[in-house]
Amino acid sequence: MSTKTASARPAKRLGREERLAYGAIFPATLLLIALLFAPALAVAVVALTDWQLGATTLHFVGLENFKALFADPVFWTALKNTFLYVLIVVPGTVVLGLIVALLIEASPRLRGFYRAVHFLPVMSTMSAMAIVWGTMLHPTIGLVNRVLASIGIAGPNWLRDEQTALLTLAVIGIWQGFGFAMVLFVSGLKSIPQELYDAAAIDGADSIFERLRTVTLPMLGPVMMFVIVLTACRCFEVFDSVSVLTQGGPNYASEVLLHRLYTESFNYLRTGYGAALTVIYLTIIVCLTLGQTRIMERRVHYT
């Protein structure tokens, strides 16, 4: 008799915990589906249609959008520029961030001040700061060309020149991001145990560069990897500075993927084409992030 009630009861209690859990996850689950997974699926579907925003008809066109995309030289320019941007900004950000981090951590003097100063660009609203950069790079009244002129060099029209536009945007990208890399490097430096430096000193590696080579840089390996991938992800998302300063011009010299996506989808309202572009973009980002987790896992075993 008593065992009978007892065996019936536990099931009921477990049920209560489950009911509670389902109540708790219901809103989040619903929104995850409605705002993340269903839209992601919708992008893939729209990419296979000729749909245009506001149109009432819709035809499946198979891979036509992708064919059009791959036949479009502007797409290839945008892709090339994006990778070029990544190739400039990532090393720039990592090297500058690492140097600043090493110098800041080298001594406690003014440490907090330097950290705050270098972190300010990370916090600033890019659209406003891009406008400011625009005036600094102005061919005649801009700070950069005034300084160059004072030493007798006639600076180019940085943002209007096909040769310099992308490079200039990349410098702005480094400006915005290197403080963040610095912060990540600092936290990586802090986690290196002092005993390793002591051991290195006893083993004879006591000059600054020896310490750097034998202890600091190898121990920073995982953080370095992380900063590289993170910066690369942010680079693929570059949009604000392009949109504010060059609109991808001149002559697509600074056109990048996300700005292309925006222009095609929301200016020209070529939704199917934009969706195909989105699929490409999504694939790149997901591969990059997955690659990072794969590498990070291997690194964890190593350290």
Partner: peptide, 17 residues
């Protein structure tokens, strides 16, 4: 935690659930 079987009584009252 809940037992898989058996029961607990306090002062003669079963308190399992």
């Amino acid at each position: 935690e809940t037992q898989d079987s058996g029961s607990i009584a306090v002062d003669g009252d079963i308190i399992d659930g």
